[in-house]
Nucleic acid binder design. Sequence first.
DNA 1: ACCTGAACACCGTTCAAGT
DNA 2: ACCTGAACACCGTTCAAGT
Lengths: 236, 236
Amino acid sequence: VSVVVRVREPLSRERVLAAAMSLADAEGVATLTMRRLAAELDVEAMSLYHHLPGKEALLDGLVDTVLAEIDDAITQAEKEEATAHGWRSALRRRFLTARTAMLRHPWAPGLIGTRPTIPATLYAYYDAILATLIGAGFSYHLAHRALHAFGSLALGFTQELFTPTTAGGSTDVNLSDAELAAMAESLPHLSAMVQAELHAAGGDTLGWCDSQIEFEFTLDLLLDGLERARRRPARP
Amino acid sequence: VSVVVRVREPLSRERVLAAAMSLADAEGVATLTMRRLAAELDVEAMSLYHHLPGKEALLDGLVDTVLAEIDDAITQAEKEEATAHGWRSALRRRFLTARTAMLRHPWAPGLIGTRPTIPATLYAYYDAILATLIGAGFSYHLAHRALHAFGSLALGFTQELFTPTTAGGSTDVNLSDAELAAMAESLPHLSAMVQAELHAAGGDTLGWCDSQIEFEFTLDLLLDGLERARRRPARP
DNA sequence: ACCTGAACACCGTTCAAGT
DNA sequence: ACCTGAACACCGTTCAAGT
């Protein structure tokens, strides 16, 4: 008899991280358990511990991988080209590039926000931002404040509290007339705003709360403010 | 024989939430398990389910409680007084008030950020912000963008990625000369910034990364930008 | 009605044992 | 060396049973 032997590729830190990455992308970071991840790799949960110290290390590894992805996306050519157009467009470009990576991995912001220690990669990332600011004549003091002001925007995401995707009287939401009336009474401005914006968007629900446009608006607000602060050299 | 009977106060949703609140404040939201919370109340874990449908409801309840705390702190008198001084100082006051509540409950930002559904209380909170903006002549469109731009600032917290509290060569950090040199080489701008800022603060580590000042700086940056956008009525 | 013990289906992780 | 089974100490939650 002839026997086909399916040789399993040996496990490795890289293979484990890659599997964790696609599992998180596909089914969310909540489903990422050691047992489930092991099953995905056709292995027992305990085998993972030979390549990673534990789950915390796994999560740290995921964050590092995403940060590396961002850095890869910001190619040298891009950096130089953008720098030629000034610090403002250089950072704008950088943050928007980071954002595309974050959109690929929707779980990353939450993970980055809850990690107990700052990943070492992040320091290099901020050093690069600082290089741009200092090179443009920012004082260390103002550059420092700029870093804080950017906050999570520097990594391409925002902490959105207000996503009233289904709060309005749009067609795809089933609210009774009574409910709509109650909402118009208890939340008059919110209701009016949703109506006005939906009307302006021509009933196009996609135009309502376009996160890309909102992101760029907020970013430009900050960049403009910093540019003004930069030209007003006296410290407050 | 005389018998002293210690009558236990009966459980209630309020008592459970209050206990959860103080447990989270004292030991962090991570230690908040149904079993641990029950033990704190001198009761079995399963008793909690008579007053709350489950753990998700418990967490939702915690968020609602914090939001109610913020709303209580923004008294009517404050609102009116602040409104008399314009939308800018009204919102500034509101967001700084929210911040004090968040400082009392450091776990709240993380919880609010990860809750799957938006708490109903939040809609009322945003309706009040909108009332201020619209009353000041904001268009619904610009007001909408303002809400997104505020993001978590409206609830008094920021997603801080960069907290180099111990990254510098400060006295309370034990870095060898070799490590310092390595850092100065790999992270030149970050090192220089930390040095410059520590020197400017006169070696006062407290003056370095004062989160209150950083918060107000970012907030003013946004408020100034929105004020300029308000006076430039044409939509971009 | 309110509270409870035992049990179920999960976690991350340890450890001794396999090859 | 790399992988594994069984076990431990936890989770949230269900359910039948107590009072």
